[in-house]
Amino acid sequence: MKLDFVIRGSDFINAGEASSGTKKALTRLGISPKAIKRAAIAMYEAELNAVIHAGGGNAEVEIFSDHVQIRVIDNGPGIPDVELAMQEGWSTAPDIAREMGFGAGMGLPNIKKNSNDMSIETEIGHGTTLTIMIRF
């Protein structure tokens, strides 16, 4: 099963809708609640990164019998130092996002923690593709 979502940049009102839609689809398929929660958390963080940092993007979700692959693709500024971005507490979120409770510097670490595999392809000035795999 394949699902596609458009993520709009700086749209904090609808932020989380792609993750919520994926959660619903996984629930309908009878996937284990623990795996669904991990997928929902990881995807929410990826979705919010696209909303906050990248001017939006797209999410492509592919559900297989034993895992789900989530790919969030943006055309944003790219991540200059992935190693630094992976550190808990490191954040470049603007004040407007921080005032809403974002910017804890936990996004990428949370994704790593909740997924079985994650990879980041990023190019400065061109964008970032984050691929997450969660086993059921």
Binding site: F12, I13, A15, G16, E17, S19, S20, K23, K37, A40, I41, Y44, M100, G101, F102
Partner: peptide, 12 residues
């Protein structure tokens, strides 16, 4: 803010 609702849903 509205983001609180999204987090509450996803975190159950």
């Amino acid at each position: 803010s509205v983001n609180v609702v999204a987090v509450a849903v996803l975190a159950e």
